[in-house]
Design a protein around this nucleic acid. Structure first.
Lengths: 268, 268
DNA sequence: AGTTGTGAACTTATTCACAGCG
DNA sequence: CGCTGTGAATAAGTTCACAACT
């Protein structure tokens, strides 16, 4: 199959697939819950159940980290917690700066899971002078002008952007220039960053739109099933779907005029 | 997830790949921005740039919707906006209920992008009686006991959970029982739902952990490059990476005691 | 007996590259 | 000539199913 040219020499030694990396935090959370209940070992089946994935996938994921299980027994909870934490880089401390202290920024600052493992809010920053000096979640809000100082002094390498969309790219540029190389973006904009900087985005409106798509599809299917109503009973009704609400047959309009605007602004 | 043998006969007629669906909102946002600037047409190249994807992918994505472009010219902005909106189900109205009005819930309620297209906050709900009656973002907070009534009366089919982790499953069950079939979950828990209900999750802590993984990897690579320093110059240095901050060589510890807890609680 | 670890089969997604059309 | 639309090639991710090990 190989075309001759190594299509990418693969990352040194272990190259953990991105999809696996994205699931490790999920496993870690489930394992931590078990650990708190002092459960000593879990099988892939049990753990998979708790994490909401299937067991084959989980085993394959773990196989990328190494052989940490015991055949016939399962995985040692404490040991796995440690291995995954290490793999994710959570055995070290990550100072984080949050920019934009509106409702969302405040929610993030107050977020308990933040501090609990590896992450520490090094600073809160906002452009609004009336906010600076005020304390949110026990941390003083500082003016955005101090951003470079804060990043350097605290060795921040992860930045969280919770500003309105209009300010996001600007803030991003400053973060990157100051040395931040990972960004979590809550503003509904595509950020452009230089090579070597990672951006992840969290976007409410995108998630809702994806849900709407499926919701619409469900409604359409239900409709076509009713219409086509193919008498012959299917073998064994699934028994599951509650099929409760009659899905409000809301008026359906073609469009809503030429001034549509999705992007809008963030809470700030 | 039909238990039956047929591996899934493919969705009726057009089956738009999930990955494509997830990108449509991105395209839509970029298109809307163009529309506001009264740009009449775009090429796949330009639009792809604005949406942060590559043009081949964009064209392939659009090809699942139909042939909406003009060869040699590009895509008509207004027309595409309409087609994508329709495909996503945004030409109809989606009443949404938000449960859990803490910092996060309030941020969501205030979120401008919410109302702007298709989505309408039908109700805010919280279990805390001291909140009920108060107004957030111009909407009165109602007590969670009214959930079933609200869902039925407003024909809500999308619910947003912004409660602490401990309450999420309970709230989810009530939403589903009341007839909600799409859920956007901000609580750091795996929700279990019956077949036919869609759940999407937004999880700060997971995103941060993924960033930490890559951040750690970058630091390790940089380190090994310095150490191995293979004299012989590579052909054409990439020129890109700014390699700014010296990545605070924080103390690295093995673990931090047996009481680790990631899940923690949400802002509420 | 019970459960992991993993090749192999399969599915989904991305990218290439160019024919086809305006 | 330029740009879309798409088959074909490649890559990534998932699931199967079972040998290997405790």
């Amino acid at each position: 199959m190989a075309t001759g040219r190594p299509p990418r020499p693969a990352t040194r030694g272990r190259g953990i697939p991105e999809a696996t990396v994205a699931r490790l935090p999920l496993y870690l959370r489930a394992l931590t819950a078990l650990s708190e209940r002092s459960v000593p070992t879990v099988s892939s089946e049990e753990l998979a159940g708790a994490a909401g994935v299937n067991s084959a996938k989980l085993r394959k994921d773990f196989s990328y980290l190494g052989s940490y299980g015991t055949r016939g027994v399962g995985y040692d909870v404490e040991y796995l917690v440690y291995q995954i934490s290490r793999e994710l880089g959570l055995t070290q401390d990550w100072p984080v700066v949050i920019v934009g202290i509106g409702n969302l920024g405040a929610a993030l600052a107050n977020y308990g899971g933040f501090a609990s493992r590896g992450f520490r809010v090094a600073a809160l920053m906002d452009a609004d002078p009336s906010l600076t000096g005020r304390s949110v979640a026990g941390i003083e809000v500082r003016h955005i002008d101090e951003l470079e100082t804060v990043v350097e002094d605290s060795g921040v390498s992860i930045g969280v952007i919770a500003t309105p969309a209009g300010a996001a790219q600007q803030v991003c540029d400053r973060l990157v220039a100051a040395g931040v190389s990972s960004i979590l973006n809550f503003a509904p904009t595509v950020l452009s960053v230089p090579d070597g900087v990672d951006v992840r985005k969290v976007d409410l409106s995108i998630e809702l739109q994806i849900l709407a798509f499926h919701e619409q599809r469900k409604a359409a299917e239900e409709l076509s099933r009713e219409v086509a109503a193919p008498a012959a009973g299917e073998a064994a009704a699934p028994a599951a779907p509650p099929a409760a609400a009659p899905a409000a047959a809301a008026a359906r309009r073609g469009d809503r005029g030429p001034d549509g605007d999705i992007p809008a602004v963030m809470p700030a």
